[in-house]
Nucleic acid binder design. Structure first.
Lengths: 118, 118
DNA sequence: TCACTATACATCGATTTTCGAGGTATTCGG
DNA sequence: CCGAATACCTCGAAAATCGATGTATAGTGA
């Protein structure tokens, strides 16, 4: 919703600590979000390709003996810069939404009282 | 990104403290978010209509003398319930994304050091 | 007066995102 | 052998976003 290119930011974040292949990135986002974020492969792979076209990640094919090779992604310096920028934007966005929605729950009355009812 | 029906949650939130007409809702979201959230009318009106179809808001036309009448929206009990549920989901979602992205910047090295490098 | 901006409602269509379903190929457990 | 997991990928429907356009009125400034 409204926060553009959010997936790309998460993808770049997943690569911050080292190169990974696509499937591993998807699992990582899933695991580290406590199953909250579950991106399908049909979202992951095209987004990764877009990142590559923009030069935000670089890729190499790693041969696996026996099985088909894996495509490994690494974040580039431009990718890191974009990640920082996107992270700042995310925090701005998320602060704005959170303040409009209010901290979980709080009927109207409860909320005003919590604020010292002014 | 990825957080479904986010606009609807914000629309419901805007009505928490009393009925408003569509245009005023748009301005409210804009103002109270510090210009961070800027929804166009082509997003607001259809979303409001969808909310009405779902019984989450009720509407009435308020005649203005001279000018065309305004459509005023009020949140219903079902709308309040949905807002609470959506707010909880937002917080889960936003916590997950924030923890993956990290608190605004921090290069990889800086970040580990900040955590006591462990 | 004329133009422009703001208020206030709304739709349309192009673009972008999301997501389920499919397709290929290999390995491993039962 | 079958199903699940790994690993890559595309397609197409559905949903969301966004700019343009249309109607109508009121107010501001040139």
């Amino acid at each position: 919703m409204v926060f553009r290119n959010g997936l790309e930011a998460l993808l770049l974040a997943a690569l911050r600590e080292g190169p990974l292949h696509g499937y591993a990135i998807a699992q990582r986002l899933r695991r580290e979000s406590g199953e909250v974020l579950r991106f399908g492969e049909s979202q992951i792979y095209p987004a990764l390709h877009a990142l590559e076209r923009q030069g935000l990640v670089s890729t190499s094919w790693e041969p696996q003996d026996g099985r088909p090779p894996r495509r490994v992604y690494a974040i580039t310096p431009q990718g890191s810069a974009r990640l920082e920028q996107q992270t700042r934007e995310w925090h701005r966005f998320s602060r704005a939404v959170s303040s409009l929605l209010g901290s979980s729950e709080t009927s109207d009355r409860t909320r005003k009282e919590a604020l010292g009812h002014a």
